[in-house]
Amino acid sequence: MIKIYVTSAKELSLVAKQKIEDAFSKKHNEAPVFVYDLDPSLIGGVLIKDGEKYYDASVRGRLATVKHELK
């Protein structure tokens, strides 16, 4: 059973959830199970963990990238 963890800063709407599930279901042969979680420290966007891969669409992640590039 494939589990995909979705962490968001704010509660996702059903539309948003559907979009995420549609996008990530295409990547696998079998239907994955989505686990949703909240983390306000992300500030905005989502952080998705699919197996070993991370998909960082959070504001916090972007700010971290900027911080890294400023170094």
């Binding site: 968001s8 539309v15 948003a16 979009k19 905005g44």
Partner: peptide, 17 residues
């Protein structure tokens, strides 16, 4: 960061992925 901003971020990232 508003709800609309949040939605836009998610849509943009989904498209990129």
């Amino acid at each position: 960061v508003s709800e609309d901003d949040n939605r836009d971020i998610i849509d943009k990232c989904l498209k990129e992925w």
